[in-house]
């Protein structure tokens, strides 16, 4: 009986932790984030029901069928009917939950990038973020690894002999305009990092040797923290930057301010 009560108590506390939302998602700030949160909640409800039923059933079985005088165990090897029922039931429930959710992933990763998307390049390095805006020409200039000079203010090795590179802006922080599609091009100078911003519900590895695009649209203004989410070395926990979502006008002004030498 103590075991049953303990299991039930654990179940109640676990449920309260989830239902009470004491430690929870930050308010969403991207267009796809709402769908992602809804899919999470759907999954939470389905698995929550499975979790509660299984734990309550386990506790009940232990309490109800505890050995005692005169008790006789039921001699049975099972029931094929039951096996078929719960196999089919779990298959249907789980796949019915998982398959529709794939459309959110498809929207994020398989959809065409809109023509008017603002492209920003993000380069990770131990343990800093380099954000590059293409400048007025809209084109990213050439990079040459042997020109890399963190101390001299050229962390990406921007090759200024390329005219497209001359107006490129490389910053340690990021700002984006509200409501405009953003395409980030992710790369790394050294080891694998991951770009993550909780409020945007965005996370993606930066893999050396690859250029990985991701897209999203911000839906509320604010200043959010960019965190590295893939172990990258001793100061991994300290690899931080900021992403500010600004109105279109503020963003244009911000870009102008930053371009000052």
């Amino acid at each position: 009986m103590i075991l049953a009560v303990t299991i039930w108590l654990i179940t109640i506390v676990s449920t309260v932790l989830m239902v009470g939302k004491y430690w929870w998602f930050p308010e969403v700030a991207s267009a796809h984030g709402g769908d992602l949160d809804r899919q999470f909640m759907l999954t939470l409800v389905v698995t929550g029901v499975v979790f509660i039923l299984a734990q309550v059933g386990l506790g009940y079985a232990v309490a109800r069928y505890r050995d005692g005088a005169g008790k006789v165990a039921n001699y049975t090897h099972g029931s094929e009917k039951l096996e078929v029922i719960w196999t089919v039931a779990t298959t249907v429930v789980f796949f019915a939950m998982v398959i529709p959710g794939q459309s959110i992933w498809a929207d994020l990763y398989l959809a065409e990038t809109p023509e008017d998307a603002l492209r920003i390049e993000v380069t990770g390095q131990q343990f800093a973020w380099n954000i590059r805006y293409p400048g007025p020409d809209g084109e990213f200039g050439r990079l040459a690894p042997d020109l890399i000079d963190d101390e001299g203010g050229n962390p990406l090795g921007l090759d200024l002999s390329d005219t497209a590179a001359q107006d490129d802006l490389v910053l340690p922080i990021m700002a984006i305009p509200l409501g405009k599609p953003i395409e980030l091009l992710l790369r790394s100078k050294d080891v694998t990092h991951a770009f993550s911003v909780r409020e945007l519900r965005v996370k993606q590895d930066l893999v050396p040797g690859l250029l990985i695009p991701i897209q999203f649209t911000a839906t509320r203004t604010g200043r959010f923290e960019i965190a590295c989410a893939e172990l990258c070395g001793l100061q991994h926990y300290n690899m931080r930057s900021f992403l500010e979502v600004l109105s279109e006008a503020d963003f244009a002004q911000w870009l102008k301010d930053q371009a000052e030498e």
Partner: peptide, 29 residues
């Protein structure tokens, strides 16, 4: 019995992480 309880508790959370869209948020957390 503890194993069964833990197996359920640890198993159901797998149904979040197997969905790539949900994993975008939960991955490496």
């Amino acid at each position: 019995l503890g194993f069964v309880s833990l197996f359920v508790s640890g198993g159901v959370t797998g149904l979040f992480l197997n969905q790539p869209a949900v994993d975008v948020y939960l991955h490496d957390t």
